[in-house]
Protein backbone atom coordinates (compact mmCIF):
# COMPACT_ATOMS: atom_id res chain seq x y z
CA UNK A 1 0.00 0.00 0.00
CA UNK A 2 2.93 2.28 0.59
CA UNK A 3 3.43 2.47 -3.15
CA UNK A 4 -0.14 3.61 -3.60
CA UNK A 5 0.31 6.22 -0.92
CA UNK A 6 3.46 7.56 -2.50
CA UNK A 7 1.79 7.69 -5.88
CA UNK A 8 -1.18 9.44 -4.35
CA UNK A 9 1.06 12.04 -2.76
CA UNK A 10 2.87 12.60 -6.03
CA UNK A 11 -0.41 12.87 -7.86
CA UNK A 12 -1.67 15.46 -5.40
CA UNK A 13 1.43 17.51 -6.00
CA UNK A 14 1.08 17.24 -9.74
CA UNK A 15 -2.57 18.18 -9.60
CA UNK A 16 -1.76 21.20 -7.47
CA UNK A 17 0.98 22.26 -9.81
CA UNK A 18 -1.22 21.89 -12.86
CA UNK A 19 -3.93 23.92 -11.18
CA UNK A 20 -1.46 26.69 -10.46
CA UNK A 21 0.29 26.68 -13.81
CA UNK A 22 -2.70 26.30 -16.09
CA UNK A 23 -2.83 29.20 -18.57
CA UNK A 24 -6.58 29.65 -18.48
CA UNK A 25 -9.17 29.53 -15.77
CA UNK A 26 -11.00 26.45 -16.90
CA UNK A 27 -7.83 24.42 -16.89
CA UNK A 28 -6.95 25.65 -13.47
CA UNK A 29 -10.37 24.76 -12.12
CA UNK A 30 -10.10 21.33 -13.65
CA UNK A 31 -6.79 20.90 -11.90
CA UNK A 32 -8.41 22.03 -8.70
CA UNK A 33 -11.19 19.49 -9.07
CA UNK A 34 -8.77 16.68 -9.59
CA UNK A 35 -6.74 17.90 -6.69
CA UNK A 36 -9.80 17.90 -4.46
CA UNK A 37 -10.73 14.35 -5.44
CA UNK A 38 -7.25 13.12 -4.78
CA UNK A 39 -7.23 14.77 -1.41
CA UNK A 40 -10.54 13.12 -0.62
CA UNK A 41 -8.97 9.85 -1.57
CA UNK A 42 -6.10 10.49 0.75
CA UNK A 43 -8.57 11.15 3.57
CA UNK A 44 -9.99 7.73 2.91
CA UNK A 45 -6.51 6.33 3.15
CA UNK A 46 -6.17 8.09 6.48
CA UNK A 47 -9.30 6.33 7.78
CA UNK A 48 -11.38 9.47 7.82
CA UNK A 49 -14.34 8.74 5.60
CA UNK A 50 -16.37 11.63 7.07
CA UNK A 51 -13.79 14.11 6.00
CA UNK A 52 -13.36 12.39 2.68
CA UNK A 53 -17.04 12.64 2.00
CA UNK A 54 -17.19 16.29 2.98
CA UNK A 55 -14.10 17.12 0.98
CA UNK A 56 -15.42 15.40 -2.10
CA UNK A 57 -18.85 16.92 -1.86
CA UNK A 58 -18.15 20.44 -0.69
CA UNK A 59 -14.44 21.10 -0.99
CA UNK A 60 -14.13 19.77 -4.46
CA UNK A 61 -17.54 19.39 -6.02
CA UNK A 62 -19.51 22.37 -4.89
CA UNK A 63 -16.53 24.70 -4.84
CA UNK A 64 -15.47 23.59 -8.28
CA UNK A 65 -18.93 24.16 -9.62
CA UNK A 66 -19.00 27.59 -8.05
CA UNK A 67 -15.68 28.40 -9.59
CA UNK A 68 -16.74 27.27 -12.99
CA UNK A 69 -19.81 29.39 -12.76
CA UNK A 70 -17.81 32.40 -11.66
CA UNK A 71 -15.20 31.89 -14.33
CA UNK A 72 -17.85 32.02 -16.99
CA UNK A 73 -18.95 35.41 -15.80
CA UNK A 74 -15.55 36.97 -15.62
CA UNK A 75 -13.39 38.59 -18.22
CA UNK A 76 -10.32 36.63 -19.28
CA UNK A 77 -7.43 37.13 -16.90
CA UNK A 78 -5.11 40.00 -17.62
CA UNK A 79 -1.60 39.05 -18.60
CA UNK A 80 -0.04 39.82 -15.32
CA UNK A 81 3.61 38.91 -15.47
CA UNK A 82 5.00 38.36 -12.05
CA UNK A 83 8.62 39.50 -11.96
CA UNK A 84 11.16 36.76 -11.99
CA UNK A 85 12.73 37.95 -8.79
CA UNK A 86 9.40 37.83 -7.08
CA UNK A 87 8.81 34.31 -8.25
CA UNK A 88 12.22 33.26 -7.10
CA UNK A 89 11.71 34.88 -3.75
CA UNK A 90 8.34 33.21 -3.38
CA UNK A 91 9.84 29.86 -4.26
CA UNK A 92 12.64 30.35 -1.81
CA UNK A 93 10.33 31.38 0.96
CA UNK A 94 7.94 28.56 0.23
CA UNK A 95 10.82 26.13 0.40
CA UNK A 96 11.86 27.66 3.65
CA UNK A 97 8.41 27.30 5.08
CA UNK A 98 8.11 23.78 3.80
CA UNK A 99 11.49 22.99 5.24
CA UNK A 100 10.44 24.33 8.58
CA UNK A 101 7.29 22.29 8.48
CA UNK A 102 9.23 19.23 7.46
CA UNK A 103 11.53 19.68 10.38
CA UNK A 104 8.54 20.08 12.59
CA UNK A 105 6.92 16.92 11.33
CA UNK A 106 10.15 14.96 11.64
CA UNK A 107 10.64 16.30 15.08
CA UNK A 108 7.16 15.55 16.35
CA UNK A 109 7.67 14.21 19.80
CA UNK A 110 4.92 11.74 19.28
CA UNK A 111 2.92 13.46 21.89
CA UNK A 112 0.13 11.50 23.35
CA UNK A 113 -3.12 12.72 21.92
CA UNK A 114 -5.05 13.34 25.07
CA UNK A 115 -8.40 13.15 23.37
CA UNK A 116 -8.49 9.50 22.48
CA UNK A 117 -8.74 8.15 26.03
CA UNK A 118 -11.01 10.98 27.06
CA UNK A 119 -13.40 10.40 24.22
CA UNK A 120 -13.33 6.72 24.75
CA UNK A 121 -14.09 7.16 28.42
CA UNK A 122 -16.96 9.55 27.90
CA UNK A 123 -18.45 8.08 24.79
CA UNK A 124 -20.97 6.23 26.86
CA UNK A 125 -22.36 9.42 28.25
CA UNK A 126 -22.53 11.22 24.94
CA UNK A 127 -25.63 9.41 23.71
CA UNK A 128 -24.04 8.33 20.43
CA UNK A 129 -21.48 5.72 19.64
CA UNK A 130 -19.74 7.43 16.76
CA UNK A 131 -16.88 9.33 18.38
CA UNK A 132 -16.86 11.93 15.59
CA UNK A 133 -20.46 12.80 16.15
CA UNK A 134 -19.91 12.74 19.89
CA UNK A 135 -17.16 15.28 19.56
CA UNK A 136 -19.00 17.41 17.05
CA UNK A 137 -22.33 17.57 18.74
CA UNK A 138 -21.65 16.92 22.35
CA UNK A 139 -18.10 17.34 23.57
CA UNK A 140 -17.29 20.23 21.30
CA UNK A 141 -20.71 21.25 20.15
CA UNK A 142 -19.79 24.89 20.72
CA UNK A 143 -17.32 24.71 17.84
CA UNK A 144 -19.98 23.21 15.65
CA UNK A 145 -22.42 25.90 16.56
CA UNK A 146 -19.90 28.53 15.64
CA UNK A 147 -19.05 26.72 12.42
CA UNK A 148 -22.67 26.96 11.48
CA UNK A 149 -22.32 30.62 12.15
CA UNK A 150 -19.39 30.69 9.74
CA UNK A 151 -21.57 29.14 7.12
CA UNK A 152 -24.29 31.62 7.75
CA UNK A 153 -21.82 34.49 7.72
CA UNK A 154 -20.61 33.29 4.36
CA UNK A 155 -24.16 33.27 3.16
CA UNK A 156 -24.79 36.76 4.41
CA UNK A 157 -21.59 37.83 2.73
CA UNK A 158 -22.58 36.33 -0.55
CA UNK A 159 -25.97 37.90 -0.19
CA UNK A 160 -24.38 41.26 0.38
CA UNK A 161 -22.03 40.91 -2.57
CA UNK A 162 -23.98 38.68 -4.85
CA UNK A 163 -24.76 39.45 -8.47
CA UNK A 164 -27.82 41.35 -9.38
CA UNK A 165 -29.56 38.58 -11.22
CA UNK A 166 -29.47 34.84 -10.71
CA UNK A 167 -28.68 32.44 -13.53
CA UNK A 168 -31.66 30.87 -15.09
CA UNK A 169 -30.58 27.45 -16.30
CA UNK A 170 -32.41 26.22 -19.31
CA UNK A 171 -35.01 23.56 -18.77
CA UNK A 172 -33.39 20.28 -19.50
CA UNK A 173 -34.78 17.86 -21.96
CA UNK A 174 -37.20 14.99 -21.31
CA UNK A 175 -34.34 12.61 -20.66
CA UNK A 176 -33.45 14.48 -17.59
CA UNK A 177 -36.82 14.53 -15.94
CA UNK A 178 -37.01 10.84 -15.15
CA UNK A 179 -33.58 11.02 -13.70
CA UNK A 180 -34.74 13.79 -11.44
CA UNK A 181 -37.75 11.85 -10.43
CA UNK A 182 -35.47 9.24 -9.00
CA UNK A 183 -32.71 11.51 -7.87
CA UNK A 184 -34.66 13.92 -5.74
CA UNK A 185 -36.40 11.46 -3.43
CA UNK A 186 -33.27 9.39 -3.32
CA UNK A 187 -31.20 12.26 -2.11
CA UNK A 188 -33.66 12.92 0.65
CA UNK A 189 -33.56 9.30 1.59
CA UNK A 190 -29.80 9.13 1.57
CA UNK A 191 -29.59 12.29 3.56
CA UNK A 192 -31.91 10.91 6.17
CA UNK A 193 -29.93 7.75 6.27
CA UNK A 194 -26.64 9.54 6.68
CA UNK A 195 -28.15 11.61 9.39
CA UNK A 196 -29.35 8.61 11.28
CA UNK A 197 -26.15 6.75 10.63
CA UNK A 198 -24.15 9.55 12.12
CA UNK A 199 -24.97 8.34 15.60
CA UNK A 200 -23.07 5.15 15.22
CA UNK A 201 -20.91 5.32 12.12
CA UNK A 202 -19.32 7.95 9.89
CA UNK A 203 -21.99 10.32 8.68
CA UNK A 204 -24.00 13.15 10.12
CA UNK A 205 -25.45 16.51 9.42
CA UNK A 206 -22.74 17.90 7.17
CA UNK A 207 -22.69 14.92 4.92
CA UNK A 208 -26.44 14.68 4.94
CA UNK A 209 -26.75 18.35 4.18
CA UNK A 210 -24.33 18.01 1.30
CA UNK A 211 -26.29 15.18 -0.18
CA UNK A 212 -29.51 17.06 0.26
CA UNK A 213 -27.99 20.00 -1.47
CA UNK A 214 -26.93 17.74 -4.32
CA UNK A 215 -30.50 16.72 -4.78
CA UNK A 216 -31.70 20.25 -4.69
CA UNK A 217 -29.07 21.29 -7.19
CA UNK A 218 -30.21 18.58 -9.49
CA UNK A 219 -33.71 20.01 -9.27
CA UNK A 220 -32.33 23.46 -9.80
CA UNK A 221 -30.44 22.52 -12.92
CA UNK A 222 -33.41 20.73 -14.14
CA UNK A 223 -35.36 23.91 -13.87
CA UNK A 224 -37.76 22.37 -11.42
CA UNK A 225 -36.61 24.57 -8.64
CA UNK A 226 -36.30 28.27 -9.11
CA UNK A 227 -35.12 29.90 -5.93
CA UNK A 228 -35.45 33.29 -7.51
CA UNK A 229 -39.13 32.74 -7.77
CA UNK A 230 -39.51 31.78 -4.16
CA UNK A 231 -40.15 34.68 -1.77
CA UNK A 232 -36.98 35.50 0.14
CA UNK A 233 -38.27 35.03 3.63
CA UNK A 234 -38.97 31.31 3.67
CA UNK A 235 -35.68 30.34 2.04
CA UNK A 236 -33.73 32.45 4.43
CA UNK A 237 -35.74 31.13 7.27
CA UNK A 238 -34.89 27.65 6.12
CA UNK A 239 -31.21 28.50 6.12
CA UNK A 240 -31.37 30.04 9.50
CA UNK A 241 -33.72 27.55 11.03
CA UNK A 242 -31.22 24.82 11.69
CA UNK A 243 -28.78 27.17 13.30
CA UNK A 244 -31.57 28.76 15.24
CA UNK A 245 -32.64 25.35 16.44
CA UNK A 246 -29.10 24.62 17.48
CA UNK A 247 -28.77 27.90 19.37
CA UNK A 248 -32.18 27.51 20.92
CA UNK A 249 -31.31 23.98 21.96
CA UNK A 250 -28.11 25.25 23.53
CA UNK A 251 -30.03 27.79 25.52
CA UNK A 252 -32.78 25.36 26.35
CA UNK A 253 -30.21 22.94 27.67
CA UNK A 254 -28.88 25.72 29.80
CA UNK A 255 -32.31 26.40 31.15
CA UNK A 256 -32.91 22.76 31.84
CA UNK A 257 -29.56 21.69 33.23
CA UNK A 258 -27.90 24.91 34.14
CA UNK A 259 -25.04 24.41 31.72
CA UNK A 260 -24.83 25.51 28.16
CA UNK A 261 -25.17 22.67 25.71
CA UNK A 262 -25.33 20.09 28.46
CA UNK A 263 -28.17 17.89 27.34
CA UNK A 264 -30.44 16.44 30.00
CA UNK A 265 -29.27 13.14 31.26
CA UNK A 266 -30.24 10.21 29.14
CA UNK A 267 -31.82 12.28 26.43
CA UNK A 268 -28.59 13.06 24.69
CA UNK A 269 -29.37 11.15 21.57
CA UNK A 270 -32.78 12.72 21.04
CA UNK A 271 -31.32 16.17 21.38
CA UNK A 272 -28.45 15.40 19.08
CA UNK A 273 -30.72 13.97 16.45
CA UNK A 274 -33.05 16.93 16.61
CA UNK A 275 -30.20 19.34 16.27
CA UNK A 276 -28.69 17.36 13.47
CA UNK A 277 -31.97 17.28 11.68
CA UNK A 278 -32.21 21.02 11.79
CA UNK A 279 -28.64 21.36 10.73
CA UNK A 280 -29.12 19.09 7.76
CA UNK A 281 -31.94 21.15 6.39
CA UNK A 282 -30.07 24.31 7.10
CA UNK A 283 -26.86 23.15 5.51
CA UNK A 284 -28.64 21.94 2.45
CA UNK A 285 -30.47 25.17 1.97
CA UNK A 286 -27.40 27.26 2.71
CA UNK A 287 -25.24 25.42 0.25
CA UNK A 288 -27.88 25.79 -2.36
CA UNK A 289 -28.20 29.47 -1.77
CA UNK A 290 -24.47 29.88 -1.78
CA UNK A 291 -24.41 28.25 -5.14
CA UNK A 292 -27.25 30.10 -6.68
CA UNK A 293 -26.05 33.33 -5.16
CA UNK A 294 -29.36 34.64 -4.05
CA UNK A 295 -29.40 38.21 -3.13
CA UNK A 296 -30.79 39.06 0.20
CA UNK A 297 -34.35 39.98 -0.27
CA UNK A 298 -34.71 37.20 -2.76
CA UNK A 299 -36.68 37.74 -5.84
CA UNK A 300 -37.62 41.26 -5.02
CA UNK A 301 -36.71 42.95 -8.26
Amino acid sequence: MIVFDLMLAAAILVAGWSALSAPDRTGAIAGFLVFGLLVALSWVRLDAPDVALAEAAIGSGLTGALMLRAAGRMAPPAADRVPRAQRAAAALLACGLAGGLAVAVMDLPGATIVYDPLVRADLGQSGVSNPVTAVLLNFRAWDTLLEMAVLLAALVLVAALGPRGTPRPARLGPLYTPFLRIMAPLSVLVAGHLLWLGATAPGGAFQAGAVLCGGLLALYFGGALRPAAVPAGPLWALCAAGVAVFAAAALAAEVLTGTLLAYPDGADKIWILAIEGGLTVSIGATLLLLFTGLRQGGARA
Binding site: E147, V150, L161
Partner: peptide
Protein backbone atom coordinates in the same frame (compact mmCIF):
# COMPACT_ATOMS: atom_id res chain seq x y z
CA UNK B 1 -16.75 34.50 21.33
CA UNK B 2 -13.12 35.15 20.54
CA UNK B 3 -12.46 37.02 23.73
CA UNK B 4 -14.16 34.36 25.80
CA UNK B 5 -12.66 31.39 24.10
CA UNK B 6 -10.19 29.18 25.86
CA UNK B 7 -9.45 26.84 23.04
CA UNK B 8 -7.19 27.23 20.04
CA UNK B 9 -9.46 25.56 17.57
CA UNK B 10 -12.44 27.47 18.84
CA UNK B 11 -10.43 30.65 18.39
CA UNK B 12 -9.83 29.67 14.81
CA UNK B 13 -13.52 29.22 14.25
CA UNK B 14 -14.37 32.59 15.72
CA UNK B 15 -11.73 34.10 13.48
CA UNK B 16 -13.47 32.60 10.53
CA UNK B 17 -16.78 34.25 11.40
CA UNK B 18 -15.00 37.46 12.08
CA UNK B 19 -13.10 37.39 8.82
CA UNK B 20 -16.13 36.69 6.68
CA UNK B 21 -18.27 39.29 8.38
CA UNK B 22 -15.49 41.82 8.08
CA UNK B 23 -15.15 41.19 4.38
CA UNK B 24 -18.85 41.75 4.13
CA UNK B 25 -18.59 45.00 5.97
CA UNK B 26 -15.79 46.11 3.69
CA UNK B 27 -17.75 45.38 0.58
CA UNK B 28 -20.95 46.84 1.90
Amino acid sequence: GLYLSGDLFNLYVTFEILGLAAVGLTAL
